[in-house]
Simulated assay, not measured.
Amino acid sequence: MKIEKFESWWVKRDQCLFDEKRRGGAKMPWDVVVIKLTTDTGIEGIATAMAARSGQVTESYLCDTAAPVVMGRSPYDREKIFYDFWNVDRHEAFFPVFLPGSVDVALWDICAKAAGLPLYQYIGAYRESLPVYASSLFYDTVDAYVNEALYYRDKGIPFYKAHPPGPYEFDMEIHQKLREAVGPDMGLMTDPVGEYSLDEAITVGRQLEKLNFLWFEEPFRDFELYKYQELCKALDIPIAATETTRGAHWGVAQVISQRAADIVRADVSWKCGVTGTLKIAHLADSFGLRCEIHTTTMTYMDIVNLHVSCAIRNCRFFEYFVPEESFRFPMKGKLPIDNHGIITVPKAPGIGAELDWELIERNCVSYKVLTL
């Protein structure tokens, strides 16, 4: 079996999910590039790639640089292909962090389908379901966070993570009001996305400990290892990091070796697919750390995250980026979350989720196909 066709669809949508602070004044449409790899036996592997800054750049990298790496090769050669991508990246390609993962996911999808197994069983199953936590966008008011947490609690989801926008004093107000509103039983986390000084982070962390938050995520940029080391020493609350660390498992290894995180983060989009995410999860497990899989911001790829999470032991939650409707495009159907906040992995061969091809064709800016 070998890859004989590589197709891509740059799919446009008129939506931006980040505020002006995080756009930096630039345009940031939340486009998606869909890829399909087809083998000489007719099996298809499907994945999506982020195109939040430039769909043209994402599509060009995939077709001009990534596709030649896999064309004509066996999808079972995933490990060799993984390292070939790193060699290409090292020698002047400089892939966007989310780019190789989509190709790797498509390869895994093919192989699981060929085996007639859902992906998590093809990897090696540990469980079939996980509790979810609702994970917010950035909002301007305290009430927006409080109301959202209460809404999802009433829908049966007992965990909520805020992405407070800063400055840290405002974030502390959000933390306080959230705990007061939801009471002592709802699990809470916070992720300010890398904006604090060290002393600010210590101040916030001590507040979070008093409020019984479950973890404190990414108060600094991922490369600020000294600050993470000092924060981990100063606080008892677990510190979560490595969401955007470059270098897949190599990058995360530096964080673990320097004791700069208590929980590491990975996902199939930003950490080089199923292959890279499994390497990180197994690395963390060998040190007795959790690897909490984070959202790809694309519901279809989050289903892949779910498969990986159900194939490892050291992940406690599924991150449910809300509102779901903002991230579902172009997948059909909703995430399989029940009334008690439990998500169950699909049982169909491969990824087990469907894309809306009519929607893709209707919103397609560019379609490219490469064949042998």
Results as ranks from 00 to 15, higher is better:
residue 60 S to H: 13
residue 61 Y to Q: 05
residue 61 Y to S: 05
residue 61 Y to T: 06
residue 62 L to W: 03
residue 63 C to T: 06
residue 65 T to S: 10
residue 66 A to E: 00
residue 67 A to L: 01
residue 68 P to N: 07
residue 68 P to A: 05
residue 71 M to G: 03
residue 71 M to L: 15
residue 72 G to V: 01
residue 72 G to A: 06
residue 75 P to Y: 03
residue 75 P to G: 04
residue 76 Y to A: 13
residue 77 D to F: 00
residue 78 R to M: 08
residue 79 E to M: 08
residue 80 K to N: 09
residue 81 I to H: 04
residue 82 F to G: 00
residue 83 Y to F: 15
residue 84 D to T: 09
residue 84 D to Q: 15
residue 84 D to Y: 05
residue 85 F to S: 01
residue 86 W to T: 02
residue 87 N to K: 14
residue 88 V to D: 02
residue 88 V to S: 07
residue 89 D to S: 10
residue 90 R to G: 12
residue 91 H to D: 07
residue 91 H to R: 14
residue 92 E to A: 14
residue 92 E to T: 10
residue 93 A to E: 05
residue 94 F to H: 11
residue 97 V to P: 00
residue 97 V to E: 07
residue 97 V to W: 08
residue 98 F to C: 11
residue 98 F to G: 04
residue 98 F to Q: 07
residue 99 L to A: 08
residue 99 L to V: 08
residue 101 G to K: 07
residue 101 G to F: 02
residue 102 S to H: 02
residue 102 S to Q: 01
residue 103 V to P: 00
residue 104 D to F: 00
residue 105 V to D: 03
residue 107 L to N: 03
residue 107 L to C: 07
residue 108 W to K: 12
residue 108 W to Y: 15
residue 109 D to K: 14
residue 110 I to W: 10
residue 110 I to N: 07
residue 111 C to Q: 10
residue 111 C to V: 09
residue 112 A to D: 02
residue 112 A to Y: 03
residue 112 A to F: 06
residue 113 K to Q: 11
residue 114 A to P: 00
residue 114 A to M: 11
residue 115 A to D: 02
residue 115 A to R: 11
residue 115 A to K: 13
residue 116 G to I: 05
residue 117 L to M: 14
residue 117 L to D: 00
residue 117 L to E: 08
residue 118 P to T: 01
residue 119 L to N: 09
residue 119 L to Q: 09
residue 120 Y to S: 10
residue 120 Y to K: 06
residue 120 Y to V: 03
residue 121 Q to C: 06
residue 121 Q to V: 01
residue 122 Y to C: 03
residue 122 Y to L: 05
residue 123 I to E: 02
residue 123 I to S: 04
residue 125 A to R: 15
residue 126 Y to K: 15
residue 126 Y to H: 13
residue 126 Y to A: 10
residue 127 R to V: 01
residue 128 E to M: 11
residue 128 E to D: 15
residue 128 E to Q: 15
residue 128 E to I: 04
residue 128 E to S: 15
residue 129 S to W: 01
residue 129 S to K: 15
residue 129 S to G: 05
residue 130 L to F: 03
residue 130 L to T: 01
residue 130 L to P: 01
residue 132 V to W: 12
residue 133 Y to I: 06
residue 133 Y to K: 14
residue 133 Y to E: 11
residue 134 A to G: 12
residue 134 A to W: 04
residue 136 S to D: 10
residue 136 S to F: 08
residue 137 L to T: 02
residue 138 F to I: 11
residue 139 Y to H: 14
residue 141 T to D: 10
residue 141 T to H: 10
residue 143 D to P: 01
residue 144 A to S: 14
residue 144 A to K: 14
residue 144 A to E: 12
residue 145 Y to K: 14
residue 146 V to S: 11
residue 146 V to N: 11
residue 147 N to P: 01
residue 147 N to A: 09
residue 148 E to S: 15
residue 149 A to R: 13
residue 150 L to S: 10
residue 150 L to M: 14
residue 150 L to C: 12
residue 151 Y to Q: 13
residue 151 Y to W: 06
residue 151 Y to N: 09
residue 152 Y to Q: 07
residue 152 Y to N: 07
residue 153 R to Y: 09
residue 153 R to N: 12
residue 155 K to T: 03
residue 157 I to F: 11
residue 157 I to H: 07
residue 158 P to F: 07
residue 160 Y to F: 14
residue 160 Y to E: 02
residue 162 A to C: 12
residue 163 H to C: 12
residue 163 H to G: 08
residue 163 H to P: 06
residue 164 P to G: 11
residue 164 P to K: 13
residue 165 P to C: 10
